[in-house]
């Protein structure tokens, strides 16, 4: 039984400008306990897909089941089982690190005592203990990202959606996050769907990769299988071959800027 399955999941944005087909029918299955890397160039539709799977954005086509519940018919049941760290985060500049973590716990049903204890625990896991009483605008970019992650982990979700979780993290924090993701999977069986533009990260962390481009899935497989299929030494080369950009050209014309 897949823990996530989508069929023709699609989203078209209509507004004042011409309609944008951000996601054009994605079929995806994710097994419980799998770490899935969702890759694709800028504007491929990764964030839009995650926003649909996390109930934030109603699909304009297709269907999906997440953690055994229909995305559209029973979004509340889906929400109880998932955690989401958005690409641009979600911190209130009027609050402190601690008050954000405690509120998050309480929104997921912990009482004040347990939410407070959980906040301290998460602070240890994400190296925020020294920063608990700082207002969130006083955090560095990477510290803020770690707080976003802590917020998404508060309720120990069955499925964790991470949209570019390591953007802005220093190498040490990034290694810590990789370890944390693996530990969540190994100790708690957490399923993780993450997007990233760091292909070494996808290679190291993901059991399986799905590459999307212009709103559709263009390749899928384990990092090793993708490399083998394109005769590539690195996932980066495989990715470039898949998305049709070829290996980086050697350009001799002087830059125009």
């Amino acid at each position: 039984m897949p823990i996530i399955s989508t069929a023709g999941l699609a989203r078209t944005f209509t507004g004042r400008s011409s309609p944008v087909e951000a996601v054009r029918g994605i079929d995806l299955t994710v097994r419980p306990g799998e770490i899935l890397g969702l890759l694709g160039p800028n504007g491929a539709g990764k964030t839009t897909t995650l926003r649909m799977l996390t109930t934030l954005l109603p699909p304009t086509g297709g269907a999906a089941t997440v953690a055994g519940h229909d995305l559209v018919k029973d979004p509340a049941a889906v929400r109880r089982r998932i955690g989401y760290v958005a690409q641009s985060g979600g911190l209130d500049p009027q609050e402190t690190v601690r008050s954000e973590l405690v509120l998050q716990g309480r929104l997921y049903g912990l009482d004040r005592t347990r939410a407070t204890a959980r906040a301290e625990e998460l602070a240890v896991d994400l190296d925020l203990t020294e920063l608990l009483d700082r207002p969130t605008p006083a955090l560095s970019g990477g510290q803020r990202r770690r707080l976003d992650l802590a917020m998404g982990l508060t309720h120990r979700p069955e499925i964790l959606f991470l949209d570019e979780p390591t953007t802005g993290l220093d190498p040490g924090s990034r290694a810590d996050l990789w370890a944390l993701v693996r530990r969540l999977r190994d100790e708690h069986g957490t399923t993780v769907v993450l997007t990233t533009h760091y292909l070494d990260e996808a290679d190291a962390l993901a059991d399986r990769i799905v590459v999307v481009d212009q709103g559709t899935v263009v390749a899928e497989g384990s990092p090793a299988a993708l490399k083998a299929a394109h005769g590539a030494a690195t996932l980066q080369d495989a990715f470039l071959a898949i998305t049709g950009r070829g290996p980086a050209p050697v350009d001799t014309t002087p830059v125009a800027v």
Partner: peptide
């Protein structure tokens, strides 16, 4: 709140 991402962060909770 929408521009800070706080609105979506709350909407993703079961509240």
């Amino acid at each position: 709140e929408k521009s800070w991402g706080v609105f979506d962060r709350m909407r993703v909770t079961p509240v």
